[in-house]
Amino acid sequence: MEIFEIVTYFILLALLSTAIRVVTTSNVIHAAISLVFTLALTAILFLILSTEFVALVLVLVYIGAVIVLFLFGIMITRAPLGKNAELDNDKNKKLGAAISGAIFLLFSYILINGFNGNVTITSGSSTELLGEILLTRFIFPFELVSFVLLAALIGGITLARKDEALIDEDQV
């Protein structure tokens, strides 16, 4: 079990450094790519914690779909590629650092004092049981989430497409 702990500490350090890079880099594409690394390291952490189905869902949905959507968003909104000094609001930097530092100190104080436990890493799959629970005990939220996805799909299309009728009205 000792090797697991060393690997976990390395992953946590890498997670922190890539997350810092997401919020501090002055290059929009680099921020998106750093988020890919953050999510991949999170998936590895989930694999270590023996929740393999969630790790695979994270890789599929986040790295496969959400990041691609982000890259499309960056390119469509014509964000200046390359280094961009205008990306950060320098006025807010001190205030943002103070607020996020306070939140971090508060959360870590509560978490360190409140939860003290050991996790035993077990091998073996939990995916079969997870699917059974998801489709019996949690069937109503599951169906509700699929409805939410449909609503988001329709809403996204309606928002993003050009409304020809509206443009005609403006011209008249």
Partner: peptide, 26 residues
Amino acid sequence: MIVQPVLVVAAALFSLGIYGILVRRN
């Protein structure tokens, strides 16, 4: 494996996200 380092790193990610929301302009 001890749980606290993972929880603290999660808290750090949360505060980094707050920092990004407050500071970013795009």
